[in-house]
């Protein structure tokens, strides 16, 4: 509450990171938006700028008149983009649900573990996060290949006679996303479950709930903030994921992150990739704001 003190120091603490983020995070989005409204050119940079800042205000007005929605029209005309957006959202959604289903029992088991070993378990969950994302995705290629370790194992114990085709299918992508993002789901779930008073469950049992109904009526509802945070932490980045579909997915797998990458690096069509990015951002803006809201609320409670 106290506001006494050297005002300059206080100001700098706000202004420096604020200015940095404005310049390197927010302004770039404005530029993306601007370029998505310009036309493609065979040059470097390969687009014709909408605004010429040297002309000042009149230049901007002239520029606004030249706004071109061609790129967006192009996106709607080519069914490929709509499909890519759709399948990105669907793949991210399915992966998020799968991650939740796998992470919940782990987080629950950790929260119920003897308090002495909890820090160790927590460290074991976080540890893979410190190793490279790329390495973790790469590790699955050798496992999922038709002649890979999983098929070798399954055929040797006689479960299957023909190798399963997993690599280069959506299943490989699901596995990749679940594997890579599992810690992001486990941690918020664990922190929600761990601070829950165990006597609440005991009270429910004492009042006549079976263990299963005590879980659904007491434990699960109280862990919902963790579930929401975990799902958002997985879903949002998964929609725009590039490395996983690129390395594990097949050629027919459409995900928007990969489409954008190709549009940019292979086709060198900057205005179209900017338009792709803008629409992706529009799709994600609601979940992102939801995430920010949940975070701010959690901070408020911690205070």
């Amino acid at each position: 509450m106290s506001r006494i003190g050297s005002a300059i120091f206080n100001r700098l603490v706000i202004i420096i990171p604020y200015a940095w983020l404005l310049f390197f995070f927010l302004i770039p989005f404005v530029i993306v938006l601007r370029i998505s409204l310009s036309t493609t050119a065979v040059a470097m940079p390969p687009y014709t700028p909408v605004f010429d800042l040297a002309e000042g205000i009149s230049g901007i007005i002239a520029g606004v008149k030249e706004f071109s929605f061609d790129n967006y029209i192009w996106l709607t005309e080519d069914a490929l983009y709509a499909k890519a957006y759709m399948s990105s959202v669907i793949i991210a959604f399915i992966s998020t649900i799968l991650t939740l289903l796998i992470a919940y029992p782990i987080a629950y088991g950790m929260a119920r573990a003897p308090s002495g070993i909890r820090p160790t378990l927590l460290m074991l969950v976080i540890l893979p996060f410190w190793t490279s994302f790329l390495i973790r995705v790469y590790a699955w290629i050798a496992i999922l290949k038709p002649e890979g370790l999983l098929n070798q194992f399954l055929m040797s114990i006689g479960v299957i006679s023909e190798p399963l085709i997993i690599l280069n299918t959506n299943w490989a992508i699901y596995i990749g996303i679940v594997y890579s993002y599992l810690p992001f789901m486990v941690l918020p779930l664990y922190s929600a479950l761990e601070k829950m008073d165990h006597s609440l469950t005991e009270a429910a049992l004492d009042l006549g709930c079976t263990p299963i109904s005590a879980f659904w009526r007491v434990t699960f509802p109280l862990s919902i903030p963790g579930v929401v945070a975990g799902c958002l932490l997985v879903f949002i980045p998964a929609v725009g994921e590039f490395v996983i579909p690129d390395l594990l997915g097949g050629s027919e797998t459409l995900m928007i992150g990969k489409t954008l990458w190709n549009e940019f690096n292979a086709n060198r069509d900057w205005p179209v990739s900017a338009a792709v990015a803008t629409i992706l951002l529009l799709i994600l803006v609601v979940p992102i704001m939801f995430f920010q809201h949940a975070q701010t609320k959690a901070d408020g409670e911690g205070r």
Binding site: Y18, F25, P237, V239, F242, L281, Q295
Partner: peptide, 16 residues
């Protein structure tokens, strides 16, 4: 601006 980059798909951040 603090929270968005935590979840922002990297392709968007990189491109912008």
């Amino acid at each position: 601006m603090i929270y968005a980059p935590l979840v922002m798909p990297e392709v968007i951040t990189g491109l912008s």
